[in-house]
Amino acid sequence: MRELSEIEQMLIDIAKGNQQAFSELYDCTSAKLYGVCLRVLEDEATAQDVLQEAYIKIWHKAAQYQSNGLSPMTWLITIARNSAIDRRRSQASKPTESMEDYELESQQDGPEQCAHSSQTQRQLEDCLNTLEPDRADAVKGAYLEGLSYADLAEQFSVPLNTMRTWLRRSLLKLQGCMGQ
């Protein structure tokens, strides 16, 4: 990974229309941004498409980046993550068809299993509500959305070790609550 000041300079050059700087920026940041897209979308092909869309946005918005003491990688990651979230939301609103829609045998759970799953889900939601709101959001982000500890630490503006402690203590509290 290049130095942050080099990435800032690339963004300044990209804002001036420098295609070579754009190519260099892609080469040194695409792996990280692809990982962000993949973590949100959980599909390689869609993540690759969204990554390309993100770089188009970066090309067009490079002039909007201003060196304000924040990491240029944070700005780039935000664009990629928001693009991936937008795609995920648009996909969620469209019904999809699959072969499972046409199977003759029902593979749905029986009434007993549905009742048990529903009860467990309610219990988990109740237990999550016993946590402080930011701790509950961090647990959901880590274990339901697949965010890394580093991403969560950045999102909640806390040190990485603090985020690890939050999650460990929250899981212990949830484990105790679910065991009751």
Rank of each mutant, 00 (worst) to 15 (best):
G146E: 08
V139E: 02
M1E: 09
D86W: 02
Q180V: 02
S30A: 15
A45I: 01
A84F: 13
C114M: 10
Y26M: 12
Q123R: 12
Q113K: 11
Q113V: 14
Q119T: 07
A150N: 13
A45R: 12
D151E: 15
Q9V: 05
D109C: 04
R89S: 05
Q119H: 13
L25I: 10
Y149M: 06
L11T: 07
L51P: 09
E132Q: 10
Y34H: 12
Y143D: 01
S98F: 01
T46C: 04
Q119E: 12
T130P: 01
Q9I: 03
A136P: 04
T74L: 11
K173Q: 13
E6H: 10
L152R: 02
R87L: 02
A47M: 13
E3C: 04
E105Q: 09
A80H: 07
E53F: 09
Q48T: 07
L4H: 09
L51F: 09
L25N: 10
E154L: 08
V139G: 07
I7V: 13
Q180S: 10
R135A: 08
R2P: 14
Q107K: 13
L104N: 13
D126V: 01
R81E: 08
L41A: 03
S93Q: 12
K94S: 08
S148E: 12
F22S: 11
Q108P: 01
E53L: 06
L131Q: 03
C114H: 10
N82W: 02
D134N: 08
S83M: 12
I7S: 03
S157V: 02
D134T: 04
L167Y: 05
L160W: 10
G146I: 04
F22K: 03
S118Y: 08
R135G: 00
